[in-house]
Nucleic acid binder design. Structure first.
Lengths: 205, 205
DNA sequence: GTCTATATACTGATAGAC
DNA sequence: GTCTATCAGTATATAGAC
């Protein structure tokens, strides 16, 4: 029950939020199926009855968590869309946001990025089809429309812009990256943007 | 029991190989925990007794599968290392190999790429620490040493070279990429290589 | 609304015949 | 070596008291 508030879980006085956060930590540490509801309620400091009164079932907890985290990402994307105009600024802000989240809320990032939700939330769409990820790709598509980014297939453009950053996130979550991600941001983003920017293509043979 | 042979499972006359392949398909479709051994043996056309005689337990099946697939990737990397000399050729061959595997053995690729092995194989190292992935990154590191690739942090270099390709693989496995991956290879690799190649950096502002 | 104690269902693993 | 039938452990979900 002793949990500190954070950007994604500001209201830690609510016991259902505590329950969700306990579930998040345990899901990330041991996985959804290896975590029993008894462990979740023990870590959250609530009773089984409380949990089942507030959530339909264990799957319902995962669903609530999934929705909560994606809504949080949606808010962050709103802020980015509002603050920046160009694809270059927006995409780089998205990557900084992902890096920031990875450092400050690794459990949340882990749950979003590599939980195989289809295993326990078969009804849910794949994470990549999610509103948040679609919006991230739209930033890229708009960059192509406006001539900021070289014309190319949308799928390739999305992978070029976000692929290496997402790779860094995964490696960092797996403990294979020694320094905080922002250490690598400049080097990564400069090369990434140069590789898609209109009029800069260094065509080779 | 009616399964066709493939590059990774050439000997489909062996019933243990059939069992592994049935497990692979089901693990990929529904996840490790949502798949019971009864389902596996039913799909493979063998009995429970057979399975437990040949594998220590359910976890043992997953371990055998993991080892089998990684050994297969190791062989493919051997071939690449033997056939090509430069980092450029080797890395591009690796990506073509990943694309090829994704198209021809999507279950195997899915199991390798996004199964959270730590959930059911806690002893196993994370997929990214695996020999195969370490060798992939070594191709990049050697490219830096030889001056083929611009000097930069090894982690960044690895993410730049393989990140967008792995992203395409994930999106393709999730059904979000309409065409076979080789369709996108040229466009992707040309930009990717240009973004790390020594002496080609289009430094911006 | 919240709790404890309980039941039901399932699944991984084994025992023992052949 | 291979099979079938069975066991034992566990975890989700509920029932009913407060």
């Amino acid at each position: 029950m002793l949990q500190t508030p954070s950007r994604l879980f500001p209201d830690m006085s609510s016991r259902s939020v505590c329950t969700l956060r306990a579930a998040l930590r345990l899901f990330n540490e041991k996985g959804y199926f290896s975590t029993s509801v008894h462990e979740i309620v023990a870590e959250a400091g609530v009773s089984v009855g409380f949990a089942y009164h507030h959530f339909s079932d264990k799957k319902g907890m995962a669903q609530a968590l999934f929705g909560h985290l994606l809504a949080g990402m949606g808010d962050l994307l709103d802020a980015i869309e509002h603050e920046y105009e160009t694809a270059q600024d927006r995409c780089s802000a998205v990557i900084r946001m992902l890096f920031d989240l990875t450092e400050n809320e690794p459990d949340a990032m882990g749950f979003i990025i590599h939980a195989r939700h289809r295993e326990f939330l078969p009804a849910e769409k794949s994470i990549c089809s999610t509103d948040a990820f679609v919006r991230m790709r739209r930033f890229v598509a708009e960059g192509i429309e406006r001539g900021e980014i070289e014309p190319m297939d949308g799928v390739v453009a999305g992978a070029m812009v976000y692929g290496s950053a997402i790779r860094m996130v995964c490696l960092r979550l797996d403990g294979l990256v020694p320094e905080p991600l922002h250490t690598y941001f400049d080097s990564l983003w400069q090369r990434t943007w140069a590789s898609v920017q209109a009029g800069q293509s260094a065509r080779v043979g």
